[in-house]
Design a protein around this nucleic acid. Sequence first.
DNA 1: CGGTGGTTTGATCAAAATCAAGTGAGGTGG
DNA 2: CCACCTCACTTGATTTTGATCAAACCACCG
Lengths: 238, 238
Amino acid sequence: MKTFFIRRLRAQTQLSEEDLAAIEALPMQVKDIERRTPFVREGDRPSQCCLILEGFAVRSKTTDEGKRQILAIHIPGEMPDLHSLHLKVMDHDLSTLSKCQVGFINHDAIHRLTRERPDVASALWRETLVDAAVFREWIVNVGRRDATARLAHVVAELRERLKVIGLLQDHHFGLPMTQMDLADTLGLTPIHVNRVLQQLRKDGVLDIKKETVSFASAERLDHIADFDELYLHQHPMQ
Amino acid sequence: MKTFFIRRLRAQTQLSEEDLAAIEALPMQVKDIERRTPFVREGDRPSQCCLILEGFAVRSKTTDEGKRQILAIHIPGEMPDLHSLHLKVMDHDLSTLSKCQVGFINHDAIHRLTRERPDVASALWRETLVDAAVFREWIVNVGRRDATARLAHVVAELRERLKVIGLLQDHHFGLPMTQMDLADTLGLTPIHVNRVLQQLRKDGVLDIKKETVSFASAERLDHIADFDELYLHQHPMQ
DNA sequence: CGGTGGTTTGATCAAAATCAAGTGAGGTGG
DNA sequence: CCACCTCACTTGATTTTGATCAAACCACCG
């Protein structure tokens, strides 16, 4: 059930088998959620955290003028609102991209577990810190990179993150985002995303069609993107 | 010594007096650092966390092409690299804006304290989560707001954060940033910041000169900035 | 077969970047 | 005490990137 999550924890922490078992044992309520459905909203005060078991989700905010900004793209095995454990009010929305299977775990249960098992507490804390590291990189992305690099950068990031959970095929991966969604994550208009995408396609760098992203060379992509995976903190043992 | 930090914790958590005392008792090495001096760098593996006792600091990243992006502005009472407790390698730089007094606390000491006092652990975890919430808002800021709103937004944010630690005068506060620094936090060029600033000045919204920011009306500022303090999570009891 | 959601194209416009050159205040040294 | 240096800010002219507006196009689906 929590396979992807455990897979990520195994790769990125040194949790003992007992700790992992205790996490496995956390009571969880599983729900299927339709594609493109908001399921936690700004202003909410959740009493549970969710774990994405299957599918993709995004966190987003919308400005006064109705402009949406996607803040994070979440893949299976991630807990997009883990922060709600300690921040009572949601300051943004959480919605599915594709049809998702989502597990809900009560705050109480997690709090109990973290009090009993400090290593689990550290591992979860760490999860939220990696989240923050990704936010930081995204600030750089929208603040200081041009449209082409921006697009290449999110693709490179997703590639590395999907690799850890085994959802990366050789030179492509599935991504249920429209050009409109991409625009909202990159701080661009969909029209411009379309044009940049065409250029990247023409240059043989990357292609996005039918919800799959493919790229010829990871190195080439990284170079265009100014991508350095350090900020993902996926290889903590080094 | 840790006055500002304790002041923020008192305002934002329900830590017991013993917990607060235990934090006060943490051994800390105090250093004075000159203005505009980097003191933690990308790639470093810190063995201590720092606490800003006096002065202002920023976190930043620099792209391949040498463009700098400021990720956060830190004020007295904040711990800019608290995340290094669980993320071993720094993924960005930390440097002073003004002359600073900085306290350094060993990771070991903090780890010991958090194991003994789960409420302290939660409070520190929470600190890093608020940090992340600010990053999220900054993504929106650079991604979806025009130059004027962007500038107004950071000013509004700093106003609210400085209020908590008592460094906000009625309608102005000190901020040791140049227009170049502002440009690097807003994802703009200094020239453009200058022009936007002139307009805001002319409109009587806000003025920045000689390292002090003044504004006529907080409401007016917030409106221009599309600012809603919710994301700062400064009033957790509501 | 028409509707719908997503993508593409073209034309025009605006925001912000770039290039280049001042100004002006504060600090230093002759 | 004044010349000069430096750093920050300012101004103007021009260009670029990406936004906006408007209209096809296209594939999938009921």
